[in-house]
């Protein structure tokens, strides 16, 4: 057990260049999507409508609604094509078999006495769960962008307010994820692991 743990630790700082690239592009694209998305939000707040609370200018991108939309509908391509390429990469390299949360991790969370193994399982579970959230952001966004031509997609979210709320909630979820994911990464592999994912 200690031997494999040591081996794993020694391996950590090397990350696939592709994985690092997807990670970087995803972070930048998400930041731009959130800032332009909040600009759009402010034109008619999801909560409270015209009387609702606005996000301060410093978090916004685009200057006004039309500018926010221009950014949002440009960066959506970067964001979604990056995610698609990542999906293909994960599939082709078969990373899905050993890089994401598995039944073994769930078992470890339930039964393992090894704290390190449990932390590792939690870390994998957290970053695996963000993938469906990222996909939900695209699905709910598309449903709002083309509710007539993609009426079946819009109908899956029930009414318009639910659709807007779901799309908006991906923002706090992604922000909370970023925090938890960073803490878990530090726990699992210290700053070395975090650095290895960026540089």
């Amino acid at each position: 057990m200690t031997a494999t743990a040591a081996k794993r630790k020694a391996k950590l700082p090397s990350q696939a260049t592709m994985a690092k690239t997807f990670h970087w592009v995803n972070i930048i694209a998400l930041l731009l999507m959130m800032a332009s998305g909040l600009q759009i939000y402010n034109a008619n707040p999801v909560f409270g409508g015209r009387a609702g609370w606005d996000f301060p200018e410093v978090f916004l991108l685009g200057g006004w609604l039309a500018g926010g939309r221009a950014w949002h509908f440009a960066i959506m391509w970067v964001y979604s094509l990056n995610l698609l390429a990542y999906g293909i990469f994960v599939f082709v390299t078969q990373r899905w078999q050993h890089r994401f949360a598995s039944s073994g991790d769930l078992k470890a969370l339930r039964a393992s006495q090894n704290e390190k193994r449990k932390t590792f399982a939690k870390h994998r579970l957290v970053y695996t769960l963000i993938v469906p959230v990222l996909l939900l952001a695209i699905a709910s966004g598309l449903a709002m962008y083309k509710p007539a031509q993609l009426h079946w997609l819009a109908a899956m979210f029930g009414n318009w307010q639910t659709l807007r709320t779901v799309h908006f909630l991906t923002v706090p979820i992604v922000l909370a994820f970023t925090l938890i994911h960073s803490i878990m990464a530090l726990k699992v592999g210290n700053l070395r692991l975090v650095k290895s994912m960026f540089f």
């Binding site: 800032a35 410093v58 991108l61 950014w71």
Partner: peptide, 20 residues
Amino acid sequence: LLLNGCGTSLGVRQVGNLTE
């Protein structure tokens, strides 16, 4: 406000023209 300045002046038309 670099991000904001970028969004209001330089960015918008170019970004829109690029993908619209």
